[in-house]
């Protein structure tokens, strides 16, 4: 029992550490380092998002997306007109055929998503 009491006392002595005179300055140094790290991380995430978006957009451009959209639009129109004869109420296909706007919106969303995913990944790291 004596040993256990002494060990408890030793633990208390270890825990009873006096306050350092520069305790506030020490804490402020750490806060500054945290702030600096946070700012750097935000810049990194923002930059990565922009770079990811630009890369995504340029990839879409390079794959002749405009040409493909036009081709898709023509195909949709043909399909729509073909189907109209069979089912005159197929309005949704008309909307698709109505232009490449849907495809453009999808492409833009894909770019935003890519940037977002990249940002999240870096944020998690």
């Amino acid at each position: 029992m004596v040993e256990v009491e002494f060990e408890r006392r030793l633990e208390r002595l270890f825990a009873e550490s006096g306050e350092y005179g520069d305790a506030n300055a020490f804490a402020e140094r750490i806060e500054r380092r945290l702030d600096a790290g946070w700012t750097a991380r935000r810049w990194l995430i923002g930059s990565a998002g922009v770079v990811g978006g630009v890369i995504g957009a340029s990839q879409l451009m390079l794959t002749n997306v405009v040409e493909r959209v036009e081709t898709a639009g023509d195909s949709a129109r043909l399909l729509s007109s073909g189907l109209t004869h069979m089912a005159p109420r197929a309005d949704w296909l008309e909307a698709v055929a109505g232009g490449g706007s849907v495809v453009w919106i999808a492409a833009a969303l894909a770019v935003v998503m890519m940037g977002f995913v990249l940002s999240r990944l870096i944020g998690e790291i």
């Binding site: 270890f14 825990a15 550490s17 006096g18 306050e19 350092y20 305790a23 506030n24 020490f26 804490a27 402020e28 750490i30 806060e31 945290l34 702030d35 946070w38």
Partner: peptide, 24 residues
């Protein structure tokens, strides 16, 4: 949640104990 000032308060409370242990 990323509140660095809250963590700063923890450092203020326990910084001396950690520094003391390392010296010991």
């Amino acid at each position: 949640t990323g509140e660095r000032r809250a963590f700063g308060e923890l450092v203020r409370r326990h910084g001396s104990a950690v520094r003391g242990l390392l010296r010991r």
